[in-house]
């Protein structure tokens, strides 16, 4: 099935992929490094493993970015 991750369509082999595995397949090893929106709604990090994605879902990983000064 196809989902959109950060604006790019991705094909997922799994029939019922969960959010955590999609994070991992997008090289986000530590889920606490991002905030995640699914179809415009934020998902708590404790819910990633239980959140099952469906065809056409839109996922956004919003990265923490702290640099600026030093």
């Amino acid at each position: 099935m196809e989902i959109t991750v950060n604006g790019v369509v991705q094909s997922i082999a799994a029939a019922e992929p969960d959010l955590l595995s999609v994070l991992k397949s997008n090289k986000i090893e530590d889920p606490q490094m991002v905030a995640v929106q699914l179809n415009g709604q934020f998902i708590e990090s404790s819910q990633y493993a239980e959140t099952i994605l469906s065809e056409g879902d839109v996922v956004e990983f919003l990265y923490f970015m702290g640099g600026g000064s030093r």
Binding site: D30, Q32, M33, A35, F42, L62, F64, M65, G66, G67, G68, R70
Partner: peptide, 20 residues
């Protein structure tokens, strides 16, 4: 509203660690 709380220390690199 986006980022609830600071990430755990050292989970996200800074510019002085990772460069920019």
């Amino acid at each position: 509203c986006v980022f609830r709380q600071p990430p755990p220390p050292d989970s996200v690199p800074t510019c002085s660690q990772a460069g920019v």
